[in-house]
């Protein structure tokens, strides 16, 4: 059976994020009226995904290295995008990522006050990435780089839980058809299954978020359809979880999201007993 390998410190898995930092990301996100740029949304998505993934691996007094994390930025250049102490590194144990954000901001959050109302609470919100929007969109180069990094990782962890590559982009490549390098990424495998490639489409179009669709028909434009067609079909274990979240799935359901962050994906990661009363 595929996608059943244990994820632990001695058998870690891997997340590789590809983030579009091209000039087109300066355009508005989700329609002119949002007041946000696509680059702002990309930074939010990657920061939130990293934050949630780290919290998932956190125990008292530390973060367990269940994953190796890489972030490749593509725009003016294609390469590792971590700043500060992690600059230049392709894959970093998640504990190091946790302890090296660029900064930690204090944000206000509304929480249940226990008496039927809401109270303001200050929470610490780590920032690894600030919005960047310059240059072209060399998505093919980014996927080729991902293929090379994943080839190295899968050969070193031949029996590991397969890595997940998440590409966050507006789907407007400037260096050719990304379907070919995308295919070469998802052809890589460990003995436990193929590498998964998911795409998060950050668009200037307004419209309701879509996650894990099973057909192109509901998608708003060609950019979304391109990213959808490059995405891995969900393996059975993920289809089951997605279905439990109330999303209709079929064998054609793909790892694609439009204007959404896929943070819900983190909940599906199985690294031990998760109480069903912890949502």
């Amino acid at each position: 059976m595929s996608y059943t390998a244990e994820i632990s410190r001695r058998n870690p898995s891997c997340f590789l994020f590809l983030i579009d930092q091209s000039g087109s990301m300066v355009d508005p996100f989700g329609g002119e009226e949002s007041g946000r740029r696509k680059a702002d949304q990309v930074a939010d998505v990657i920061n939130r995904l990293l934050q949630n993934l780290i919290i998932k691996c956190a125990k008292q007094e530390g973060v367990r290295d269940y994953y190796h994390i890489g972030v490749i930025g593509y725009g003016t250049q294609v390469g590792p995008a971590f700043a500060g102490a992690l600059a230049g590194r392709e894959l970093v144990p998640i504990g190091e990522v946790a302890n090296n954000p660029a900064r930690i901001e204090a944000r206000e959050k509304k929480v249940d006050d226990g008496a039927g109302g809401l109270a303001d609470q200050t929470v610490r919100f780590p920032i690894w990435f600030d919005p960047v929007a310059t240059g072209g969109t060399p998505m093919c180069q980014a996927l080729t780089r991902a293929q090379s990094i994943m080839q190295g990782w899968t050969s070193q962890h031949a029996h590991g839980f397969p890595p997940l590559v998440i590409n966050i982009s507006d789907g407007e490549p400037t260096d050719g058809d990304p379907s070919v390098p995308a295919q070469s990424v998802i052809q890589l495998a460990t003995s436990d299954g193929n590498v998964l490639l998911f795409n998060i489409h950050i668009s200037s179009q307004s419209g309701a978020p879509i996650i894990f669709p099973d057909s192109q028909e509901t998608l708003p434009d060609d950019h979304a359809r391109l990213l959808f067609s490059m995405s891995s079909q969900l393996p059975e274990f993920l289809r089951t979880f997605v279905q439990q979240e109330g999303i209709n799935v079929s064998e054609n359901t793909r790892g694609f999201a439009f204007q959404a962050d896929l943070v819900t994906l983190i909940k599906f990661l199985d690294i031990g007993t998760r109480p069903s009363n912890l949502r």
Binding site: I55, A58, K59, Q60, E61, A98, P126, P275, L278
Partner: peptide, 13 residues
């Protein structure tokens, strides 16, 4: 640390 706060708030199971 920041990553321990949500877990400490949620509590143990």
């Amino acid at each position: 640390q920041w990553y321990e706060e949500p877990g400490l708030q949620a509590g143990a199971f």
